[in-house]
């Protein structure tokens, strides 16, 4: 079955965004396809490259990066939500004359069309948070 995920939750609050990453890994392990993960509103903070977590907590970033690097999953941050929250790739940082990228390169920044495409291309679209 083809899945896509929509993540709305702030990764620094509660466990919902972590649940989304765990769900993504589990569905791949069970042989399903993951078309895309789209991050909207506070969910775009999942792409933050520089979050530092205490030693007795795992960084939620690692699970996302592994999805992209080990499984080729498309991780897309909504551009409107991302820019507002200072989540920039190299291109946006240059365009708005900010110091540098603030998102991990495993993520890309794009528009809501990518969520609509994910909805059309997937059997299941699962929302986390909201």
């Amino acid at each position: 079955m083809i899945y896509s995920l929509l993540v709305l939750s702030d990764p620094t609050r509660g466990s919902m965004a972590r649940n989304a990453a765990a769900f993504a890994h589990t569905l791949l392990a069970r042989g399903h396809e993951l078309h895309r993960v789209f991050f909207l509103d506070k969910g775009v903070l999942c792409g933050a490259a520089c979050g530092i977590y205490p030693q007795d907590e795992s960084s939620p970033l690692d699970a996302w990066v592994s999805l992209a690097q080990d499984h080729g999953v498309d991780l897309v941050l909504c551009v409107t939500s991302a820019l507002r929250q200072g989540m920039l790739d190299e291109r946006e940082a240059a365009r708005f004359e900010r110091g540098g990228a603030t998102i991990h390169p495993a993520f890309t920044i794009s528009g809501l069309g990518q969520l609509i495409d994910a909805s059309a291309a997937s059997d299941r679209l699962i929302t986390f948070g909201g």
Binding site: L8, G111, I116
Partner: peptide
């Protein structure tokens, strides 16, 4: 922010 995000999504659709 979610109300705004929802309306943006509707308009994008």
């Amino acid at each position: 922010g979610l109300a705004r995000a929802g309306v943006d999504l509707a308009l994008a659709c």
